[in-house]
Design a binder for these strands. Structure first.
Length: 710
DNA sequence: GAGCACTGC
């Protein structure tokens, strides 16, 4: 390294300080130039450029703080990252965002014809591939944060591998994978060839330049990526971070919440200034720890510093989320209680101490029952590193891992990729639309296990289950090809397949207006917000919107009430910005999550536009809500349930015993026959977003599934 | 009587 580690650190600390001052543009530019030179990646810049030139695929392993994100980037797993990195790079290049450097994320496209460096979410690139299967506009694609192994990243890797092969063929170049190791498996190779040729056939006469692919990962070994890309070259970039002292417990903790509290107070009393970040598993746990800290604080010897507890989790309204970014007032130490959101999604300044119980709540999916569940599991080693790293961003830090060191060694190296933990219907529909018909043979990075030679039966079950679901929705034909027009129409919509189907059916039921709003509202999380301390008030506010028929009409009522409010504001001549502020206040008064509502309004306008371009009838059923509920029954017939004598429900398709979730408006009234949208297991099997239907409708509207019994 | 984290032409 051409620079000394300590010098680099000193510079980092200086720039962190000067950040607080309002510097003019000139010195900010100077600072950025200085920072750039000091980044470890700067020293290997020439080598990297050379490697990119020489190799078809390159894997760059850069530790946190190496500066790999600011090199050149294209896909990011998160929207905020795509936007912020684009802005940073534009600034470094002294250009306007949207010109040479731009970004494109859903609902926000900041690119132009002059854009040469485009940041985007990986989901958006996948969508682009539907229109342009060769991704012909791109000569280099960079996948950042590949170690996170999100569903979109994994599918994109497989897709890009195919595109790269196809493009290297059309351009007459040698296939980079010609020397792929013999043990890759013959079946697998044959099917890849079939997929490749389907891609090639479509653009036989067009020649494309080869596609350069760069995978950027923060994981310690690049072996997995390298093997997947036929032994692609890997480059390692040194990291730069302040030292973090890791402390383990001597024995396993029987009560980790108690251990968390003890560690918070011990740190607070014994350690110097600096904020504490605590990783917890969910909202409920965060709220209970918040109460316990306040109770126990009274018993702690009084020092000069007081404690300010700030929670952060995804469904917390944004005006409360921003509290964690504000510095603690004088004589206060901030204690941030966070879910996984603080692991990667948000970076909180001022953290010096991290408390990590080593647990995380994850979604898991049982393909046999189709039930998703939220389970608390130990984190992976990679997650443990990511969490402790949060203590060393501004200076040396400490991380308290509330488990013995021997337990750490037993953790999985990396988190189980999302593709193994979720319903695949949506992604399979997209692959089908790309002409990839053999889904089971598709070359996902999670390949048949090489040690046992067994194929991954869970994932296969998951694929089969999703194919079945898509067939039942009419998206696939008898031989599992994409159907026309239903399947094709469904791939055009950025929605869960079952919601796309509901829109297609709504055309026949003359309730498109209602269904557009409903699926937009169903596509966002937690429209209602009920803080612990105002639970009664929130309940009162919700009654205004409640429909005795169920949650779907209730969501419709909320959306329409908001739209009417906005219309009224606008007729008084208010500007958009003022109207937006009024809507924000309306949301607060009605205990509606304004972020979710805005998202639903964005989705609504997007899908409305797409539906208008299809040959579907856009009409309203007016006051005839029976028509709307019949359409819901026809769409969600796979999720129907009947009341049992004990007040629980039994699902008709899988005979599961389920309960109505307490957040449903039908929680108390418990109608005899219902359809629902979501089945998630926490303590019990809960169903959410429910509407009352007439059981006779099922046989009438879904005879293919519910043949008449008598 | 209860809601991990992301994401979509």
């Amino acid at each position: 390294m051409p620079f000394s580690e300590s010098l680099a650190r000193k510079k980092g600390a200086e720039s962190a300080r000067s950040n607080k001052n309002n510097l003019d543009n000139g010195s900010r530019k100077q600072r950025i130039a200085q920072q750039r030179k000091s980044l470890p990646i700067a020293s290997v810049e020439k080598q990297l450029v050379e490697e990119v030139r020489k190799h078809e695929t390159l894997i760059i392993v850069g530790e946190a703080g190496s500066g790999k994100t600011t090199l050149i980037g294209i896909t990011q797993p998160r929207r905020v990252a795509a936007v912020s990195v684009a802005k940073r790079v534009a600034e470094e290049c002294s250009v306007e965002v949207g010109q040479k450097v731009g970004y494109s994320i859903r609902f926000d496209d900041m690119t132009s014809s002059s854009t040469r460096i485009k940041y985007m979410t990986d989901g958006l690139l996948l969508r682009e591939a539907l229109l342009d299967p060769y991704l012909s506009r791109y000569s280099v694609i960079i996948i950042d944060e590949a170690h996170e192994r999100t569903l979109h990243t994994d599918v994109l890797l497989g897709l890009l591998k195919n595109v790269q092969l196809a493009r290297s063929h059309t351009s007459g170049q040698l296939c980079n994978y010609g020397n792929m190791k013999a043990n890759s498996g013959i079946i697998c190779m044959n099917e890849n060839n079939a997929q490749r040729s389907s891609l090639q056939k479509r653009c036989q006469n067009t020649k494309y330049p080869p596609l350069k692919l760069i995978i950027m990962s923060a994981s310690l070994d690049a072996k997995g990526f390298s093997e997947y890309f036929g032994g692609a070259r890997a480059v390692h970039v040194q990291g730069r971070q302040y030292p973090i002292e890791i402390l383990y417990t001597h024995h396993p903790e029987s009560d980790y919440i108690d251990a968390v509290l003890i560690t918070i107070f011990q740190t607070h009393v014994e350690e110097g200034p600096g904020d504490i970040l605590v990783f917890l598993t969910g909202q409920e746990e965060i709220e209970s720890v918040e109460r316990l800290i306040e109770e126990r604080f009274l018993q702690v010897p009084k020092g000069d510093l007081k404690i300010l507890v700030v929670p952060i989790f995804s469904s917390l309204p944004s005006e409360k989320q921003i509290e964690v970014f504000k510095p603690a007032p004088p004589s206060y130490r901030k204690v941030i209680l966070a879910t996984n959101i603080a692991e990667t999604s948000v970076t909180i300044p001022g953290i010096k101490y991290v408390i990590d119980p080593g647990l995380v709540k994850v979604r898991s999916y049982n393909p046999c029952t189709g039930i998703e569940s939220l389970v608390i599991v130990p984190i992976s080693k990679a997650q443990a590193f990511q969490r402790s790293g949060r203590a060393g961003r501004e200076g040396p830090g400490k991380c308290y891992r509330l488990y013995p060191e021997i337990e750490f060694s037993k953790l999985l190296n990396s988190t189980v990729p999302e593709i193994k933990r979720c319903n695949l219907s949506n992604i399979i529909l997209q692959l089908k639309a790309l002409g990839i018909d053999d889904i089971i043979g598709f070359d996902f990075m999670e390949k048949p296990s090489s040690t046992t030679g067994k194929i991954d039966t869970v994932k296969q079950a998951s694929i089969v289950k999703s194919l079945e679901e898509l067939f039942l929705l009419g998206a696939l034909t008898d031989d599992y090809k994409l159907s026309d027009p239903v399947g094709k129409q469904m791939t055009g919509l950025p929605l869960d397949p079952i919601y796309s189907k509901a829109l297609i059916l709504a055309s026949d039921f003359n309730c498109m207006e209602e269904m557009l709003i409903t699926v937009a509202m169903l596509s966002v999380e937690s429209i209602f917000y009920a803080p612990q301390e105002k639970l009664e008030e929130a309940r009162g506010a919700r009654i205004k919107f409640s429909s005795i028929e169920g949650d779907h009409q209730t969501l419709l009522n909320v959306y329409r009430a908001a739209s009417e409010f906005l219309e009224k504001i606008k007729t008084t001549g208010s500007k958009d910005k003022i109207a937006g502020k009024s809507l924000f206040k309306w949301c607060r008064d009605n205990f509606i999550n304004s972020r979710s509502l805005r998202q639903a309004r964005d989705i609504h306008s997007q899908i409305r536009g797409q539906i208008e371009n299809m040959s579907l009838r856009v009409a309203s059923c007016g006051d005839d809500m029976v028509q709307f509920r019949r359409c819901l029954a026809a769409s969600f017939f796979l999720n129907a349930a009947l009341k049992q004598p004990d007040g629980s429900y039994r699902t008709l398709t899988s005979s599961q015993t389920v309960q109505i979730h307490p957040s449903s408006v039908l929680f108390r009234s418990k109608p005899d026959c219902i359809i629902f949208n979501e089945l998630v297991r926490t303590n019990v099997n809960y169903i959410r977003n429910i509407t009352r239907i007439d059981p006779l409708w099922l046989a009438e509207l879904a005879p293919q599934y519910y043949a008449a019994q008598d």
